[in-house]
Design a protein around this nucleic acid. Sequence first.
DNA 1: TAGTGGTCTAGACCACATT
DNA 2: ATGTGGTCTAGACCACTAC
Lengths: 249, 249
Amino acid sequence: MKKNKLESKLSAHSPTYQPLYKQVEEYVTQLIIEQRWKPGDMLPNEFQLAKEFNVSQGTVRKALNALTDAQILNRKQGIGTFVSEHTDQQALYRFFPLVADNKKPQLPMSETISRQLILATKNIAKNLQLKENEEVIVLSRLRKIDDEPCILEDIYLPKKYFNKLMEEPEIPHTLYHFYQTHYHLTVQDITDQVKAVLATSSDAQRLGINVGDPMLSFTRLARSLNDKLIEYRITRCRSDKYHYLVNLS
Amino acid sequence: MKKNKLESKLSAHSPTYQPLYKQVEEYVTQLIIEQRWKPGDMLPNEFQLAKEFNVSQGTVRKALNALTDAQILNRKQGIGTFVSEHTDQQALYRFFPLVADNKKPQLPMSETISRQLILATKNIAKNLQLKENEEVIVLSRLRKIDDEPCILEDIYLPKKYFNKLMEEPEIPHTLYHFYQTHYHLTVQDITDQVKAVLATSSDAQRLGINVGDPMLSFTRLARSLNDKLIEYRITRCRSDKYHYLVNLS
DNA sequence: TAGTGGTCTAGACCACATT
DNA sequence: ATGTGGTCTAGACCACTAC
């Protein structure tokens, strides 16, 4: 009897049983993590994958469609199946929730104000699940929408995942695409905790608002495809003309 | 040649072409709206539906699974397919984003402070897509987590969808379940716009905080299964111990 | 034991895009 | 003309639940 490359179908009662299409999903994800296919690459067609994995084409299809729903792949009729890239458009709709009141969503420009190498404080270590005193890179950015400064960001990155970041000549403003192309880290899952705070004198000075004005502040944790915590970010945004937009459906 | 009850397969080039499984999805949704099946009811099994719609069982399955992903149905192996109900648990995870810092999500108690019938202001009319001066019911609620007052809500409901609401002896604290059971309106889609504001003297008094403290304020628009705007809500929450939690994945 | 949804396969045909 | 994903069908078998 022929044996699957993936776990045999007969193991249905083992405690780690996964349906074949789930196994295909995980295996394809693993291959992407290991860079057999990189963002933008086209996968082999369904029949080729089916042959490689020793499953039927329908099972491959179910797996690829699930990965498409998870935005890990995208498929185009008549063309092929591709590993998703974090383009500007995607980043905007998927990960950037701040919108000017009564306007369409728009991706702001970013200016990196400072770049430092520090040792993780207790708080940073806890959030990024690092040991205290592990090395962390801190980026401070000022972001502008329609040329108006409106957002301040402090971004904490584990040095171990971003080895050469301190030596980069320049940091582009679409960070998640940068993580993907330069560090093989694809942001897959984000949690934001939104709070209201009062503008400090430093906020006020940099954004041209008044001390004590209400501001939105959110702390973000981002996980990569391989489920590692790769970014801890604190964003502060003036709240007079901007809001944080959420759709629950 | 046999003809489908649903649009014929042969109309593939008509401008309104929908694949069969999409048509099944929409038809089943319509039947739920028309109350052939109510929240909690079990649907016929896949083969019975397939026979009724003159499609194959696999096509019905694809449609029912899509509706399950959209949380309109839920399916249990060995039992059946059911129309979703807005239970407390569901409401909490799906629609209630406010969480006490460092705690698990928890559904707050609600006390209805006032109930009024008013004419829509320009702002309310715009948000609920009503004509100005259409009748609107306003509920004001105070919500408590762990017995601590923390949230104030003003809820605007078009009178035309909530006819007898002013006569209800009591308004329960799980509103979305109440809409579903008493007014056949299932909340399906929500948009929240989150802002930071300063506590007014009224906020401060009712929540036991200080005037000028930062607060989270979000305005919510809710659409029902049949895509009507049914609720406009303004929520204000003290931000010292609570945050608005979002997961983007 | 009967009935439900879940998995897996196989194959025909369609729609779209490129060459 | 060729190759891709999308739709639709048919049927076998498995797993879970209730009676």
